[in-house]
Amino acid sequence: MKILVCISHVPDTTSRINFIDNNTKFDTAGVQYIIGPYDDYALARAIELKESTGSTVHVLNVGLADTEPTLRKALAIGADEAIRINAEPTDSFFVASQIASQAKANGYDLILMGRESIDYNSGVVHSIVGELLSLPSVSPVMKLDIEGNKAKVAREIEGGKEYLEVNLPFVAGCQEPIAEWKIPNMRGIMSARTKPLKVVEPTTIDGGVKLTKFELPPPKGAVKMVSADKVEELVTLLKNEAKVL
């Protein structure tokens, strides 16, 4: 079985978020990057499947050269080969289109990724990839087993769980507890440098989406205490200052 795991290269969860250039650009100064945590779960499940079924695992990222350490880490965790599509990941449609064109060329039985990335959190890339490849896509997948040419999948829905049987190939947006995230071992880290990391030029696609501005939530103001016997004052404040009534 050939498995593709799509990896996003995202700021560490503890990073401070700032914007520069008139709030149009994310300030990357001093930011540590990691494999998207949901992608990490997808990768961990792919490696488990590799071990139990003898599959090969490719990892893919749409990004510029600075994302390569993130891909190397995925190789250290156990992926066999990495592909970097040499482009700025501008929007979900663009990213999904690049993934789809690689997937089409390589023919995978299973395409896994996180349910969403934790930077822009669009959560739609897996659905668009499925659409572009005319494949089923399921998200969020919390359990995934392969039986023959079918996958047995458990999915979280409002108020409960849903169990599905899906024909391969298909696209899954994953989340915990699909697998326990993996720490690369020393052997993996040392072999990562010799595993292939292919750089592929992007196909020309106009995503049609342009980012114009970011806006941070307003900073939290001071707490104003209103004594319990002054309900009138509270209502006035809520109306005129907080403007919630």
Partner: peptide
């Protein structure tokens, strides 16, 4: 280098997990 940084992170992750 990147490999040493990965080892550093590996150790941090081990303690954390």
């Amino acid at each position: 280098n990147d490999e040493q940084k990965m080892i550093r992170q590996q150790c941090k992750d081990f303690l954390e997990k």
